[in-house]
Amino acid sequence: TTYKLILNGKTLKGETTTEAVDAETAERVFKEYAKKNGVDGEWTYDDATKTFTVTE
């Protein structure tokens, strides 16, 4: 399944996708990605669109 991440950081904005077996796995991948890019904020997930959003 393809999951999407929307980054709404103070200095970094953008989108990325990952293939994962479930939302929990995708969330771990995306949180590591955000951490590596210095983005830390509020996380939300929309199951209907398989989209995570992190907003600083």
Rank of each mutant, 00 (worst) to 15 (best):
T1F: 12
T1K: 07
T1V: 09
T1M: 11
T1Q: 13
T1G: 09
T2Y: 10
T2A: 06
T2H: 09
T2C: 10
T2M: 13
Y3M: 01
Y3F: 11
Y3I: 01
Y3K: 00
Y3D: 00
K4R: 12
K4T: 13
K4V: 11
K4W: 13
L5Y: 02
I6V: 11
I6S: 04
I6D: 03
I6Y: 08
I6Q: 06
L7Q: 02
L7Y: 11
L7S: 03
N8G: 04
N8Q: 11
N8H: 11
G9A: 11
G9D: 03
K10E: 06
K10R: 14
K10L: 13
K10T: 11
K10M: 13
T11Y: 13
T11S: 13
L12A: 09
L12K: 14
L12Y: 13
L12F: 15
L12T: 13
K13T: 11
K13D: 05
K13R: 13
K13S: 12
K13M: 09
K13F: 10
G14V: 15
E15C: 07
E15A: 08
E15M: 14
E15V: 12
T16Q: 10
T16C: 08
T17C: 06
T17Y: 14
T17L: 10
T17P: 02
T17I: 10
T17F: 13
T18A: 10
T18G: 03
T18E: 04
T18D: 03
E19S: 12
E19G: 05
E19V: 13
E19Q: 10
E19F: 13
A20P: 01
A20V: 05
V21S: 14
V21M: 14
V21C: 08
D22F: 04
D22A: 04
D22W: 03
D22P: 01
A23F: 14
E24I: 15
E24D: 11
E24W: 09
E24V: 13
E24Y: 14
T25M: 13
T25L: 06
T25P: 02
T25C: 06
T25F: 08
T25S: 14
A26Y: 00
A26N: 00
A26T: 01
A26S: 02
E27H: 11
E27G: 09
E27W: 15
E27L: 11
V29N: 06
V29E: 08
V29L: 12
V29Y: 15
F30N: 00
F30T: 00
K31V: 06
K31W: 08
K31G: 04
E32G: 06
E32M: 09
E32N: 09
E32Q: 11
Y33W: 14
Y33C: 04
Y33F: 12
Y33R: 03
A34W: 03
A34F: 03
A34H: 01
A34T: 07
A34P: 00
K35R: 12
K35S: 11
K35M: 14
K35A: 15
K35C: 07
K36D: 08
K36T: 14
K36N: 13
N37V: 15
N37E: 08
N37T: 10
N37W: 15
N37F: 15
G38V: 04
G38N: 14
G38K: 07
V39S: 03
V39H: 04
V39M: 07
V39C: 05
D40R: 12
D40N: 12
D40Q: 14
D40S: 13
D40Y: 14
G41L: 02
G41Y: 02
G41W: 06
G41F: 03
G41R: 01
G41N: 01
E42L: 10
E42I: 15
E42S: 13
E42G: 06
W43R: 00
W43V: 02
T44I: 08
T44P: 00
T44N: 11
Y45E: 00
Y45T: 01
Y45C: 01
D46C: 07
D46H: 05
D46P: 00
D46E: 09
D47A: 11
D47L: 08
D47E: 15
D47N: 09
D47M: 11
A48W: 08
A48S: 13
A48D: 13
A48G: 08
A48I: 10
A48K: 14
T49F: 05
K50Q: 11
K50Y: 10
K50M: 09
K50C: 05
T51E: 04
T51L: 04
T51Y: 03
T51G: 02
T51H: 02
T51V: 08
F52G: 00
F52S: 01
F52W: 09
F52K: 00
F52D: 00
F52A: 01
T53M: 10
T53R: 06
T53A: 05
T53N: 05
V54N: 02
V54P: 01
V54M: 06
V54Q: 01
T55R: 06
T55W: 15
T55A: 05
E56K: 03
